[in-house]
Amino acid sequence: MLLKTTLIRLLTTAVTLFGVAVVVFVLVRVAPGNPIAMMLPPGATEADIAALEALYGFDKSLPEQFVIWLGGVLQGDFGTSITLRRPVDELVLSRLPATLELSIMALVIAVALGTAIAVIGARRRGTATEVGLDLSSGAVLSVPDFLWGLVFVLLFGVLWPVLSISGRIDPQIEVDFTSNFYTFEGLLRGRLDVVQSTLSHMLMPALALALPLAAMIAQLLKQNLKEVLLQDYTTLARVRGFSETSVILREALRNALLPTLTLVGVQFTFLIGGTVIVERIFSYEGLGNMAIDAVINRDLPLIQGIVLLFAALFIVINLLVDLSYTLLNPRLRHG
């Protein structure tokens, strides 16, 4: 049973990734702009261009190019970046930790903030506080993440410059880590200066990414909480002497979180998508920023690598969401 579901899962994953590979491959090639011409100085001859095209394999037909590229990918060779002249997998993997850390921090902020607001709203249901919180989260939700990014740059970077608005870490700090997970490795190594600096650089972009999701969680979770709070077992808990707050936290929250989890999973992938622009705004050295450079420079192998990695990431996240859903729901666990 478990084996069968796992196999189906693996198969669909493979099919999805293949589909993504085909689509990206075709799209970046039909889009206007010749990457080779952009690499060479203005005076380059037709012959120079042709020679370089042959070097990168652009002289072959589209299906041929695809087969060659896919053959490489299957052996772990994602090609070489045209602009940066280094293996794509190496480049992409060196940037992934920055984006992951940023996304995880945004997710943690969104869940913590959203849950807190939902709990307060449910606790004060039927009062002006609830209405006020509803209105605020509606307003927050109507502003997309990159606009929040710009607002924060203006507020805390320009008008009241208290936070760093550019980069990933203070360039004065020397980092000789084995991985690029500055925050995690910094914590493990006890390099609190690194942790402190990366966190303070991440705070604003993470907050920009987190706010819309936090508002969404707040709205949905509060609605679920209010429904759960009408259930008989919460009434019984009140009769047994538990306060309204502990009824919410101990009896209602876990049941209300379950339906919220699916939303968080789907929205987390959107949040990661949002890093592309938000990283750009804050000059944060992550995958998204690299992706924009790659697109501007028509760096086809790099674009392909980044898109494939994002697709794989989304699949893994959906897998984790399904898994945690099963873990949190006793009915499914024993089913």
């Binding site: 077992y233 019984l236 009769v239 876990r254 049941n255 729901n329």
Partner: peptide, 16 residues
């Protein structure tokens, strides 16, 4: 005081 509720299906928390 204590309560014995009407519907035992909804009076126990399904997640605990």
């Amino acid at each position: 005081a204590a309560l014995i509720p009407q519907d035992p299906l909804t009076a126990l928390n399904p997640a605990r």
